[in-house]
Amino acid sequence: MRKLALTTSALAVLLTGCESNPLYFRLSADYYPVSITGSVWEYSVEGGGTRIVSVVDQVIVDQRPCYRLQSGAGYDYWINENGRLEHYEDRRVLFNGYEVPVYQAWVTYLEWPLADGMTRRDSASAQAVSQGITLSHSWTRNTQVTGPESSPDGTWDNCYRVHQEETVINWVQTAGYEPDTIMSTRDIWLAPDVGMVAKVTPDSTLILTVYTPGQ
């Protein structure tokens, strides 16, 4: 009788608070499906307008095969493999009317699987000489992931919210120039097998309206 009572108590403790959530679904999902040529994301821009992002093709950048995404007239390069999402950082400093390239490298953007509370910090410093003047560039990016949660418009479930704070310091090391510090923040919601469904910065909001996966 005592054994039964003990067992029942133990089971009651064990079964209390047993919550189920689709953890295996999230583990199976691709939260940044940029590896399918032809995929198109169409976003509405707060205040009017649309922004279309598409996976154009596969190219080789810095000796690595990657996928090229087009948004307007600009291109971004991504690799999503081996448990991490990498972005090609192409940093330039404006000097005397020219964009001088100072830092180009593949940098890990996120590591999979995402989880609530995960953090990462990326940083780099670089210098370049242009017209006899040294240009220095440094940047730091802090990333924090929270979730899972719904997207801001409530359309997508099991999203992870990626909060990023980035600080860029550009310095033209000659008389009359001071270090130029630029700070920015952004919140990105990533949905399973869809990718970015919302992006909020202090001065803009993008919401996904149509997603067409490539073939």
Binding site: L15, E19, S20, N21, L23, P113, A115, D116, M118, T119
Partner: peptide, 19 residues
């Protein structure tokens, strides 16, 4: 039986799931 699954990644962790 019941399975409690917990994920830890990058210093964070999702709410465990009981299934």
């Amino acid at each position: 039986g019941m399975c409690r699954t917990a994920l830890e990644s990058g210093g964070g962790g999702d709410t465990p799931s009981w299934d």
